[in-house]
Each structure stands twice: as structure tokens, then as C-alpha cells.
Simulated assay, not measured.
Amino acid sequence: MPLRLRATTAAALTALTVLTLAGCSSAPDEKEKPRQPATTARLAATLDSPIDITLRWKNDEPAVAGRTVEFATEKAGPYTVLEFMPPGRTTYRHPDLMPETPFYYRLRPYFGPASAPVEVSLPPGEPSEEELNDNQGWMTPRTVEGPKVRTAPLTARGARSAEANAAAAPTDFKATVMHATGIEFTWTDRAADEDGHLLEVGQAGSKGYRPVPLLDPDINAFGLITLPEEKRASYRVRAFVYGEQSNVVHLRTGSDPTARTSTPTRRP
């Protein structure tokens, strides 16, 4: 499931960096950081119909926390992130595309440790008008100053990357129920060089976690408006760095299969 925008106030909408299928910023330029070792994932693409594309790859990278699927309509970009995916995913379907258009795709792994999870049970029903109209500053992504802590760098790859990253894992992760659909999260940021943080949710009865919003580096507090199916859920936050992108695959969509061809009217 793609990352989605779930805040309800203007302040939260402008402050929260969130990825959606409609478009978002791509991963940071590789020139900003030392070059990471290349990913071993080999991406392949199939045109299932004139306007539907499916991507496939093998899940053979150790220590990967997840991957992004990115696309562009020119090989040089700019690339847009379609989805942050958990490590077990090996396919992605991109449907209902613009006809007769080139599409370029690539994968980018990300690496980094997650905090210990917390379980949250929300009250039944919906928030009151007073709660909705009350100060919503708790929703805004922000950096809360706290005691100085020792930080550690994140390692993108290598046999010991999980061990090396453990010292950079967020700690003191807490969830405070604000009302029937609102939760405030806070944590201690111990990563020295993260590209960002991901809040991850595991719904009751589901397997694993999925990313929800993408947060900027150094953020350690923000609020979430939950979905109805998240009345009971487990949450954790992950500090991460991007790895090197995969190979780029290219397909061109065909004609719109729903377009009707007009037949000239024959004159008598």
C-alpha cells in the first residue's frame, strides 16, 4: 500500500512530507553522500496491456529494510517515488497509464533500524467537535529538543550492517492517544546521517508492517490521523538511508484500448 496523506489540518498538511501515487520527490541525489554499493536486485518490466505495466525482481538482498519503486517519463528523470515497500515484495503493478508514453522504472533499497514497537488501542467512535477544533499543533512534524545523546551513522550495506545500525535505532518511542482517531508519536533520534524516518503500522491480525508517512531527517515528533481499520494496531519508527539504485527498465505504452475509432458516415 502506498504512503498516504492522513492529516486533517492545514499546518499538518504543509509540514508533513508524505509520498502518494500522485507524485512526490525522488530519493536524494547520490552526489550528496558517498556512493553506496550497487543493489543486486535486477528489475524487469512487462506490458500486460497497452496501458498496464507490471514490475518484477528477486528478493535477494541481505539486511534490506525495504525498497522504493520510482518512475519517470524520461531516462534522466526526474524520478517520482510510487511506493515504499516492505522487503518481501517482489512485484509492483502500475495500471491505467498515459497511452503512447515512455515509462522508465528503477528500484532503490533503503536500510536502517526500527524502534521497538508500541501497541495502541483507540477509543471507539469518532472525535468530538471540541477535539477536532482544539489546538492541533501536536500533529505537525517537528524536532523537539531534548538531552544530548550519542548518535551513530547508518550503514547501507555489508554483512555487519544490521549490527552497525543497531546503535542508530530510534529509542524512547512513545504513542499518546489524543482522541478517537488521533495519535501523537515521539522518539529519540540517534541516527547521525539519516535520509529520513518512516512510521510503520502493523494492523491487528495482519502480517508485518507497512510504511505510512515519510518524515524529514531530525524529526522526532508528529501526529497521525488513523484509518477506521487501525483502531488496534502496532507502530514503530525507522531511521533509514537509501542505497544505490537498480538497473533502469524502459517500456512504451500503446494506444488507449478504450478509445473508440470513429467511422466516417458514407454519403448517399
Rank of each mutant, 00 (worst) to 15 (best):
E244P: 03
S26Q: 11
R108S: 03
E200A: 08
V144A: 00
G146Y: 04
G66Q: 12
P213Q: 02
D193T: 03
L215H: 02
T8Y: 10
L198S: 00
R157L: 11
P141Q: 07
L47P: 03
R56C: 06
L47V: 05
G196I: 13
Q136D: 08
L107I: 01
G158A: 10
A63R: 11
G208K: 06
T90K: 08
P147N: 09
P95F: 04
L55A: 10
E145H: 04
L227M: 05
L5G: 03
A10M: 10
L199Q: 05
A22F: 06
S246H: 05
E194T: 06
Y110S: 03
S262K: 13
V18K: 04
R160D: 15
G88M: 01
R56H: 15
P170I: 14
D134W: 02
R252I: 13
P2I: 12
D189P: 00
L21N: 00
A72C: 02
R266A: 14
A116N: 04
R236C: 05
A38H: 10
G66W: 13
M85P: 08
M85C: 15
N133K: 12
V212R: 07
T20C: 11
T171M: 00
P268Y: 12
P87N: 13
A239G: 07
V120A: 01
Y79Q: 10
P153N: 04
Y104I: 06
R89F: 08
P213D: 03
N135D: 15
R232T: 11
L199E: 14
E61M: 10
G205V: 07
E126C: 03
G243W: 00
A167H: 11
P34C: 10
R106L: 02
N220P: 07
R89T: 13
E184K: 14
S25F: 12
P211K: 06
P87R: 15
L215W: 04
P113S: 13
A167K: 15
D96E: 07
T9N: 11
T8S: 11
G208Y: 11
R267S: 08
S121E: 05
W138F: 15
T90W: 00
I225V: 12
D52K: 14
T39K: 01
R150N: 08
Y104P: 06
G137R: 01
A259K: 09
A259H: 04
T265R: 14
E100K: 14
G88Q: 15
V64P: 14
E61N: 09
V249G: 01
G243S: 00
A239T: 11
R190S: 08
